[in-house]
Design a protein around this nucleic acid. Sequence first.
RNA 1: GGAGAGGUGGCAGAGUGGUCGAUUGCACCUGACUUGAAAUCAGGCGAGCCCGCGAGGGUUCCGGGGGUUCGAAUCCCUCCCUCUCCGCCA
Length: 423
Amino acid sequence: MLDPKFLRENTDAVRKGVARKKFQVDLDAVLAADERRRHAVTEFESARAGQNAANQAMAKLPKGSPEFVAKVAEMKALSAKVKELEKSVADAESSWRDACLTVPNIPDPSVPEGRAEADNVVAAAWGDPAALVSAAAKPHWDIPGFAKAIDFERGVKVTGAGFPFYVGDMARLVRSLVQFFLEHAAERGYTEVHAPLLVNPASATATGQLPDKEGQMYHAPTDDLYLIPTAEVPVTNFFRDEILSAADLPVKRCGYTPCFRREAGSWGAHVRGLNRLHQFDKVELVKWCAPDRSLAELESLREDAELILRKLNLPYRVLLICAGDIGFPHSKQYDLEVWAGGQRRWLEVSSCSSFTDFQARRAGIRYRDAEGKVHTVHTLNGSGLGLPRVLAAILENNLRPDGSVAVPEALRRWFGKDSLALG
RNA sequence: GGAGAGGUGGCAGAGUGGUCGAUUGCACCUGACUUGAAAUCAGGCGAGCCCGCGAGGGUUCCGGGGGUUCGAAUCCCUCCCUCUCCGCCA
């Protein structure tokens, strides 16, 4: 949610920003709703002030006296009117709030123009994908023994499509990756949290999953709880409706969780194997910072994520997402894509974003500055990293002629061996 | 799951229908005293929204929602949560 005052005073800038994002929003309707709301509030409050004054006067009158009785009769009408006005305030506020929720965040000036994915800008690249292209390279699902090590069939039987079992050394490799990601995050100054995997509607609303993306989450109706689509939800909500101290900023947290996504309607040719799952593991990096720091924090967040791929020796590129392809709440966004030599394509393994105050306003996360003034914080998050696609890249890029997979040096500490035998 | 008790400002803890956004203590901030600190004293010290250039004024919020009343932290309904005991269970 944008700052209503900012929207009121910088309507043109918002209009331009929204246009850059290619979103269709009736800003005039939002402004009109704001106008109606403020009018209703003013009207209600002056009526209420009159009622309060009269009630205070009544408190001094002896109960049951003729003046008192007369006053009660007189006040009944005012009371009814106040109630009516109160209701119209509630109506005006809720429709204004609904209108506000339709307005996306505006892109940072440094975000490039563009309509769609194809217009994203390669901001950085590391490693040499060409070196990994060979006739022997194959998609991970075609590696002999894959079906046994990552058992989709059993997953279908037990749960459904997109819920594979990782078996034996493959399970160990998954666990090693989680450990490695978490250790890396700790080295980079993030405090680990182990978070709830189900959240209530208030939390899902605060981070923006509700109401728009309701269909993407699994829901447990008996208790009205949602399975988290990302650790971003519980980790960000940790500070919901709280006021942080400026001295504590930036706050950096990381969390490992399984993530659950229904992925309704997003299955196609490019989502075989590990490329898209209903349940997958991820370590998420989350930051809360002062507004003047968010762009710098985004750069360091991106660097934190990039370093993981370097340590794993996986070629990658960084895309600066263009205005037309950036998400609704985002101000600026980088995607990290790892090279999967067998599929010969880039796979997104991290999305690092700044939300400015957009998400924090919705979540009620603020900070108190040195003068004691309260402001909305800026929030950022990024994956560090999403596990299955990293695993896919390792399997495809490190496949040896004998069918085994070389385990990256960085993982051996936890994996215990330098090679993984499938099958 | 059953029975009982309770949810008030950063914390502790008063307040059971009327001038209560709320006594008091702690914490915190400012000032005085002090070479400095401690102690002491004085003052300040929640958030949201509306009006106003501003100074400032108004209004809402005592777990959430609804109700009764001229008036609700206080009474009623309902939901959520916490604690104690019992039951069940990893």
